[in-house]
């Protein structure tokens, strides 16, 4: 593991799950839960003769940023695409559950507790969702995560980070959407249906999954920022993601409600206005929507440096 200071400058995109988890919290505060020395690998992969990993591809830990206890979940895309099975799913679910229980205990024990002393959950996604080798267990774990996200509402803020190679797709695409705040880099991708499946459904002339630029402007960080699906767009270093989390972590939980895209009748009405716009526009390309949002030169938006993009871009308002 590189030194903590070096991790801060390290590319988030290139970092493995543990480097991201360690670098996100303050130096020396990291405690891994169900870590590799516990050897909780997948018994189902073992039966199928598939390589196993001691942490089952999901790093779960607790650390601190300043005064805030931070429960971290970090997915490893290089291990079977960051897919979620029985063990990794249980680790994810129980990390959120532990954060909620800890919140309740702290509130009871410390009547004068401040917002920044209350726990948050941070999930660094890198996954296509369910692991097919244990698909049923993976699917059921997704439902458990959604349940815990709702149970965390108004208590423990849950912050999504997306900036790793695999992106965040499949069932985990809606898990991310259901969290309170979403931080992405421009290399992050968020969606439900992966590009290959869209091509399969619609034909190559409608959606060419090998067109990297097309894939990025449909699901990438800049697009999601314009759509309001990503709250904060940051540079591609662990330190930049950490800084974004640190700023969010001190806020009262009520502030997080304002950042949500879904989770209330009002949010659903707002999304339905966007869907009505989609029906009316029938966009052929994400750029059509960027123009609608007030960006007259959408092609330039892809190429300008990130800081310029953040200064110039108009975000869609419905």
């Amino acid at each position: 593991m590189p030194k903590w200071n070096d991790l801060q400058e390290q590319s988030f995109l290139e970092s493995d799950a543990r480097a991201r988890a360690v670098g996100l919290v303050d130096e020396g505060t990291y405690t891994e839960l169900a870590g590799p020395f516990d050897r909780f690998y997948s018994p189902h992969l073992e039966v199928l003769g598939e390589a196993v990993e001691f942490d089952d591809g999901i790093v779960t830990a607790v650390g601190k940023i300043g005064k805030t206890p931070v429960f971290v979940i970090s997915q490893e895309g290089r291990f079977i695409g960051g897919s979620v099975g029985e063990v990794g799913g249980a680790k994810m679910v129980n990390t959120i559950r532990l954060a909620i229980e800890f919140h309740d205990k702290l509130v009871a024990d410390y009547p004068d507790i401040s917002d920044e002393e209350k726990p948050v959950v941070v999930i660094s996604f890198e996954t296509g969702g369910v692991r097919l080798h244990e698909s049923n267990a993976g699917l059921l774990a997704h439902a458990e995560v959604m349940d815990q996200l709702q149970k965390a509402r108004h208590k423990v803020p849950v912050i999504t980070l997306i900036g790793s190679k695999v992106g965040c797709f499949g069932g985990m695409g809606f898990v991310a959407a259901a969290t309170d705040a979403i931080v992405m880099s421009e290399f992050g991708r968020l969606g439900l249906t992966g590009p290959e499946v869209i091509e399969q459904e619609m034909g190559k002339e409608e959606f060419d999954s090998s067109d990297r630029a097309l894939v990025f402007r449909t699901t990438g960080g800049r697009h999601k920022y314009i759509m309001g699906d990503c709250n904060v767009l940051v540079h591609n270093t662990i330190g930049a993601f950490r800084e974004a989390v640190a700023k969010l972590a001190v806020l009262p939980v009520s502030e997080f409600e304002k950042m949500r895209r879904i989770g209330s009748p009002e949010a659903v009405e707002r999304q339905l206005r966007a869907v009505a716009l989609a029906a009316e526009m029938q966009p052929q390309d994400a750029r059509d929507v960027w123009v609608k949002a007030g960006n007259p030169d959408p092609v330039a938006l892809t190429d300008i440096p990130l800081d310029e993009f953040l200064a110039d871009v108009k975000r869609l308002s419905v």
Partner: peptide, 9 residues
Amino acid sequence: PIHLGVVGS
């Protein structure tokens, strides 16, 4: 004790 590496392909 040390742990190192990812079981990628």
